[in-house]
Design a protein around this nucleic acid. Structure first.
Lengths: 238, 238
DNA sequence: TAAATCTATTAGTATTACAATTGAGCAGGT
DNA sequence: ACCTGCTCAATTGTAATACTAATAGATTTA
């Protein structure tokens, strides 16, 4: 479901390894992990490499090191839940359905608001980008091209927001969901199903009508969610 | 405006130093920073400590290191905008008003949605926490106590959401805004001004009325924003 | 009993050495 | 003149080692 970020470095691997274990629940919050020397030995890396990894995990809020006491896994409430890696590890570990629901809920909250903001503040360049994305969706002949254009469309909306925070949040969520929400609902036969929804969003943003944009985006997201749910049931049945 | 996270460690200081410089624009994207040996020497730390800091900055998406080439500052689009530190550095560097507006915009989209979700999914324990926070606000005699209770109230709402992502996002934003949005609008005289708003939110959540909760929270946030704006004008005038 | 102190353990920092990667230039062939 | 591939050197990546600093817990002392 999730793209594993390619890791060439050694400490990168260590980060992944430990991060996965912590987020996945093998290492439970409060648990004390072996002292650096031992752990390094076990993972067959130098203490240097291990420590570089630990610093990163610590920055993500997953662990906390104190002299003499050792390093322990922090409570979940301190984790940087919005960190791309943490999110990815959760996706990789969790019995996904309820977590996906949470991600979708975030998306449902963000995107309509973003559409409204875009309608308010977009400049002509950003509108042009949006239009280009829409035309690409319209012209798409096959699923791949359509998915790519769809993604570009949503990015363009977020971009027109002129609020990097919104854009960033969406991109994190979207990465976590992978191609899930883009592709899941549509079969090869009807993948252009939501084109009218996209047009409505585009039009509202073009005309600078925030409320219309919000409603249009809401309809789109809603629709996508019901499709995902339907798909989920189908899968379960099969 | 922002709480500087207390840093005891050396690499912690280095992280702050470099992070601030990058986010603050002293080191521009694309710029190549000195090789580790030199940089370490300049900052009067060992290469070890420097590298531990670099790994963290790299995890935040601020820099990218490649062998032979060196380490360079990444484009803004790759930064983890939602990282607490990155946010804090931005707050510390930016001519704040427009950035604060962006944060407020995030808050305005999140909180009403959160209130609605809370009304849908809260359990009795969470409701009790919410009630406790409300009573504390009601009972508050002075500004400090009120601010604390207010914060607890919002946390309780987010918590009742049962969606850690929402909770996390809010907590990040709230930290970035510091006590700004909690305190800025109210003078010592009328700090209990928004109590009715809070009651409305509480009631709607208690009665499991999502839409009512959303609207109530929206009114509250809207109101808070106008107060902030008013305050801003006043400040400018003075 | 409580307060001060010592001690052993663990993370933090520094230093040094070497390995791995790779851009750039050079050599050789066509 | 142009491509190909090789070598070289610069920079990050990894390791090993030694020492420093903080502190939980035992020990001593008032």
């Amino acid at each position: 479901m999730v793209k594993a970020i390619a890791v060439r470095n050694l400490h990168g691997q260590v980060i992944q390894e430990l991060g996965r274990q912590i987020v996945g629940g093998e290492l439970r919050p409060g648990e004390l992990l072996p002292r650096e020397e031992l752990l390094a030995e076990r993972m067959i890396v130098s203490r240097t490499a291990l420590r570089e990894a630990m610093k990163v995990l610590s920055a993500k809020g997953l662990i906390e090191a104190r002299q003499r006491t050792g390093t322990r896994v922090r409570e979940k409430k301190y984790w940087n839940q919005l960190d791309a890696d943490v999110l990815a590890w959760r996706c990789a570990s969790m019995p996904t359905n309820d977590f996906v629901d949470k991600l979708v809920e975030m998306r449902e909250t963000i995107e309509p608001a973003a559409a409204a903001a875009a309608a308010r503040r977009r400049d002509d360049t950003q509108l042009a980008a949006l239009e280009a994305a829409y035309r690409a969706m319209e012209a798409a002949e096959e699923l791949d091209a359509w998915a790519e254009a769809d993604l570009a469309f949503h990015e363009a909306v977020l971009n027109a927001t002129n609020n990097e925070l919104m854009a960033s949040l969406f991109s994190v969520i979207e990465t976590a969901l992978g191609t899930y929400f883009l592709l899941s609902a549509r079969t090869a036969a009807n993948f252009k199903y939501s084109l009218p929804h996209h047009f409505a969003v585009y039009e509202a943003i073009r005309r600078r009508q925030p409320e219309a944009a919000r409603r249009a985006m809401l309809r789109m997201v809603d629709d996508s969610r019901t499709n995902i749910r339907r798909r989920r049931r189908t899968k379960k049945a099969s």
